[in-house]
Design a protein around this nucleic acid. Structure first.
Lengths: 132, 132
DNA sequence: CCAATAACAATAATTATTATCAATATTACC
DNA sequence: GGTAATATTGATAATAATTATTGTTATTGG
């Protein structure tokens, strides 16, 4: 079997994602980690992001338009994407609402539902205030 | 203003998507339409798929892994992606369940929620039966 | 400390999609 | 119906995002 070795670059990426509330893309992570390890390469960032997603330490947020984003918050929560400024924000929902929704899906489907991901779209607070 | 002219290629793409229950990618649409218009180009397929999405005649299904898929069913419904065979299937949910879920999201968010998209993951009927 | 090898940096390759442009098809008008 | 105007096409080049390759470096078990 193949063992996982420690890597300061990977650790740094994980740390960054666990402390920021942004939902950076691979490129944004790259820009940030470069300040600490100036000769890290973008490929290493991608490799480690995929590794960490695989491992369950971070979450990949992909909502269709352009690049994937990454999130260090692995607790169950939902994402909102602003159609004006493209910012991604978290939405936490009461457990009951989520359970009911999943239950309803399960009732209407023949196979086995194991997980789900929901993206909400609209205008964030700032943008909806500035729109008039 | 710019008027929209008829195009047999576009019509053919729309027809195909409205009659299939698959959720083909641009490439799969291309392969199908080529049987009817052998010298259609992939660019034309992309161009028309985007046009039809814009127009609201079809829906784009993008759940992160690889290519976008397209769906001729524009009635409100949800999508399930099998983690084993990658098939995409439809799930329709009772209106109340959806409304309650959206309402709950709205209550927990400061901005304005206008739309949402949910993907369910797991094993489809066939795969969950074959797994043991 | 050192050999084995996981992880690295640099970069090439791939995949999915969009843009460009001359040729063709569709439509409005006579 | 014929023709001018132009939307759409097919072919292909370009771009964006991500993954694979390769020789070098860092980590770790013995």
């Amino acid at each position: 079997m193949t063992t996982t070795k420690f890597s300061r670059q990977r650790e740094s990426i994980k740390d960054y994602l666990s402390t920021t509330k942004d939902h950076p893309t691979a490129d944004m992570v790259y820009d940030h980690i470069k300040k600490i390890y100036p000769n890290i390469s973008l490929g290493t960032v991608y490799r480690n992001l995929n590794f960490l997603v695989e491992q369950g330490s971070i979450i990949k947020v992909s909502y269709g338009n352009g690049s994937d984003h990454f999130d260090g918050n692995v607790l169950p929560h939902y994402h909102f994407i602003c159609r004006n400024c493209s910012a991604i924000e978290d939405i936490s929902m009461p457990k009951e609402a989520v359970e009911q929704f999943l239950h309803s899906a399960d009732e209407n489907f023949a196979g086995t539902i194991e997980a789900s991901s929901t993206y909400f779209y609209g205008l964030c607070k700032k943008c909806s205030e500035n729109k008039h």
